[in-house]
């Protein structure tokens, strides 16, 4: 991941990237209020974890699409493709940085719970921390894969919007996967979010985190698979724009 500090300059100077971080506390208040008022303390873990996962997904997907689109709009893509650093590495660095920043969402959610509701204890902090880091890695890989799709689209923002809530539902971010029709549940299992959210919710619960290592490995495996596909796809995209000459099209 090349030029993290330089990527930071870009991210810092693009206010749009920060919107989800600003919205995260609001979602946390709404979700926690719904569960508290409904007396569903068993679902408080969903309420506190859903906003940061939504933030992470939204920010990572935003940057994965915006990075290419903005480079193209500014006319920077051509020169970047002709630089010694592979474009996949540039994109990966940018996505990785934004995903890392998006983890602020976890702190925000817990602070909202602490200030406006009851504190939510993290019963297994090491498992929780490992789950968050693995999720960020998987998110980075997934977003890199998405960026290769976005670069071929002229409707990136619509595409990004369409990729949000369906994945929150399929990934068990908002509601338990068990609430979904049985036929669709296997699909959830290939989305890293389902493993991540399950793992983190269990790390908040009293009692052992069953199958911790396997579930953590699944998050990392799915992330690595997406990363490999993304790396390959960005390379293909690079080949394609060099072949077709569509580097500068907007």
């Amino acid at each position: 991941m090349v030029g993290w500090r330089r990527q930071w300059d870009l991210v810092l100077n693009t206010p749009g990237y920060w919107t989800s971080i600003l919205m995260n506390p609001l979602f946390a208040v709404v979700f926690l209020a719904i569960m508290s008022n409904a007396g569903r303390d068993d679902l408080l873990a969903f309420a506190v974890l859903a906003p940061p996962f939504m933030t992470m997904w939204a920010m990572s997907l935003l940057i994965s699409g915006e990075a290419v689109v903005r480079d193209r709009e500014f006319g920077v893509l051509e020169a970047t493709l002709a630089a010694p650093t592979p474009y996949g590495s540039v994109t990966l660095g940018r996505i990785g940085l934004v995903t890392t920043i998006s983890m602020i969402g976890f702190v925000e959610s817990w602070l909202v719970a602490l200030i406006f509701f009851d504190p939510i204890p993290i019963v297994h902090p090491l498992a929780f921390a490992a789950g968050v880091v693995a999720s960020a890695f998987a998110m980075t890989g997934t977003a890199l894969g998405m960026s290769a799709l976005f670069v071929r689209s002229t409707q990136v923002r619509r595409f990004q919007n369409a990729m949000s809530y369906p994945f929150y539902v399929l990934g068990g971010v908002i509601v338990p996967i068990e609430f979904l029709p049985e036929w669709i549940q296997p699909l959830s299992k290939v989305i890293f979010l389902s493993w991540s959210t399950d793992l983190l919710r269990d790390s908040l619960a009293v009692g052992p985190v069953e199958g911790f290592w396997f579930r953590l490995a699944m998050v990392v495996f799915l992330g690595a698979a997406a990363l490999a596909v993304g790396w390959w796809a960005v390379g293909k995209m690079e080949d394609r724009v060099r072949r077709t000459g569509e580097v500068a099209f907007t």
Partner: peptide, 12 residues
């Protein structure tokens, strides 16, 4: 490489 015109720079 130096391309001409306004494009090719991050404005912010």
């Amino acid at each position: 490489i130096v391309f001409g015109g306004e494009r090719g720079l991050y404005h912010r």
